[in-house]
Design a protein around this nucleic acid. Structure first.
Lengths: 203, 203
DNA sequence: TGTACATCAGTGAACGCGCGTTCACTGATGTAC
DNA sequence: TGTACATCAGTGAACGCGCGTTCACTGATGTAC
């Protein structure tokens, strides 16, 4: 029971939230194109006109769902750092690992973040105390800034490499092309070998 | 006149090709979601049931359009290499430059290749004499394979970095957030600085 | 060179589907007094 | 504490739209003889 005592036919109590959660499930089940107003309403067991009281239009609902995906992504990066070593190179490895893991474990959320919200959400202030994904990335990268290499460069090098790699994995680049492995999660490929490219940042 | 003399009401002569070309235009104008059977038929000035004689379903038409995009991408990489220096590091720079340029100049094609055809097309034999994009990439990378770094690793390092970077640029990472620059092409950002990460491959 | 005919590649009407949106409505909530 | 009433947040029917698909059709093409 998240809401107080509102569980009636005519007053849901927390429909906005329920619609976003329904959207997350639809996203997982059928990808971005499955995110519809009617679909979310049905999943939340509410008439299909009900969402109009909470979202101006489909784009607004999708934006809310994308933001929720971003919150999860955000947390995934923070967790990865927390569970890894504290040395700069270890943190760098951890955040990249978290990035890739999210792409593998939550492929639909990953898609949503980078196909729906463009990159807006990446720096969107969530209004909480938690930093944005970009701030987290920037902090980890800050240890590798030198006279010849400014912050923007390091951040972009790291981001481009891990994002590109995650995309390749996500797109099935390293998948076995067998019938048997159809439902298996995608292979992560030569992650460590690729990340070795970043070890030069510490030189 | 590409076709012989067939320009009648009932026999288009080269409708399949015309539909794919129409699809390319729709793609440019409205993105992947604008690619519909009815849309292509309308653009090719043909009744909306006509495509059924050339494409089994919408997926088949989209596949054909994605393949055409890939052909253009393919050529873009070859041209970039041709117009650059012949030294291995120059070729590496050139192919990455071509990759990024394609993402900037043909964003819709870029999206189509990597969102519709998954990665299948990347290694798809085009049935011509020209190599696939992956073969081109692999050839350029082959000069940087060492005892500690096998071919797959180098290829993946380069591909991940340039693909990720191109995606960031494509998503507007380096855009000015001004109203004035709304219709301008996206800024390419610190391309050379980021590519500097690859110079270690030559060490 | 001409004719009969099968095949090919179009047309246009119709169908059902899911979608976003509008609308009059109504039950539940909360506030003024 | 009780009552009147404005507001909020739902319902369900209806609408129009674009879509893919099916279908009977027909004009153009090409081949057999």
């Amino acid at each position: 029971m998240t809401s107080k005592k509102t569980n009636n036919a005519h007053h849901h109590g927390d429909l906005r939230n329920a619609l976003v959660q329904a959207g997350m499930e639809l996203l997982t089940e059928g990808g971005v194109s499955a995110l519809t107003l009617r679909g979310c309403a049905a999943k939340a067991q509410v008439s299909h006109a009900a969402p109009k009281h909470h979202f101006k239009d489909l784009a607004a609902l999708r934006e809310a769902v994308a933001l929720e995906c971003f919150v999860a992504f955000n947390q995934s990066l923070l967790d990865a750092i927390e569970n890894g070593g504290s040395a700069p190179t270890e943190q760098l490895h951890s955040i990249c690992r978290g990035y890739l893991d999210f792409a593998i474990k939550q492929p639909a959320y990953f898609d949503a973040i980078f196909s729906m919200g463009s990159l807006v959400s990446f720096s969107t202030d969530l209004g909480e105390q938690s930093p944005t994904a970009y701030e987290t990335l920037a902090k980890v990268c800050s240890h590798f800034v030198t006279k010849e290499r400014d912050a923007l460069t390091v951040e972009t090098q790291v981001w481009a490499l891990i994002h590109g790699y995650s995309q390749l994995v996500r797109m099935g680049r390293f998948n076995e092309h067998t019938e048997a492995a159809r439902d298996a999660p995608p292979s992560e490929g030569p992650f460590d070998q690729v990340m070795a490219l970043l070890q030069h940042l510490a030189d």
